[in-house]
Amino acid sequence: MGTLVVENVVAGYGSGPNILKGLSLTVESGKAYCIIGPNGAGKSTLIKVIAGLLKPREGKIFFKGEDITPLRADQVLQRGLCYVPSDRSLFPDMTVKENLRMGGFVMRDTRKVDERIDELFAQFPILKEKSSQMAKTLSGGQQQLAAIARAMVLKPEMIMLDEPSLGLSPKVVQQIFGTITTLRDQGLTILLVEQNARKGLQIADMGVVLDLGTNSFEAPACDVLNDPRIQELYLGKRHQAVAAEECK
């Protein structure tokens, strides 16, 4: 029994076609999952459905045994399941600190929120340094960090990250993945969607390959990383040049 169970979910936007077509997935507690797949496979849609931002047309989602399918986004957050969107989605004209405060919006106790923010500032000193700057003045990597910290304000049990490496330079990507690794080591359950499949799989325990709205392949990240089909399709490697990828 996993901590998050997605059962036969069918979903799409507005009156458009189904993007997820009966997808099932089980996420074990305390592990890091990396979802890879081509554009349009439904990776981001899956995360939105789990976060309660998009209601599935069919299927159910359970978190820690509770059916969270009918819950609103704020209720899902309160259950300890947070989400960092791919565009970071900060509030541009609010300071970093205000952004983090908004991260604790669903908590009524503002003192507790401030305590959490202090803890996070200790963990991410750069954010403390920039705490009174408007979010729009941060660099891409700092923005990503702020977005992650904002999700961490609620002390979630599980965090979903949509393309954290998007638009960042390789060096910054390295740092962000370092941060994610730290979170994983702290025991957080992680669901990571990544275009940069190699990087994502390297820090994950499990790899999930999505294709055309269904779950086509699920295996330990190391196996996925070294699977010749995956290498050819998503890692841009040819058959013959198979060298074992280093992984966790």
């Binding site: 931002l53 957050l77 565009d87 919006f105």
Partner: peptide, 23 residues
């Protein structure tokens, strides 16, 4: 106020407001 902040947040980024649990 909390609600006032939520209004400002929604003005600045509707998506992000949803993500942090603003209805």
């Amino acid at each position: 106020t909390r609600i006032g902040n939520a209004i400002r947040a929604t003005m600045q980024n509707r998506n992000a407001a949803q993500v942090v649990g603003v209805n």
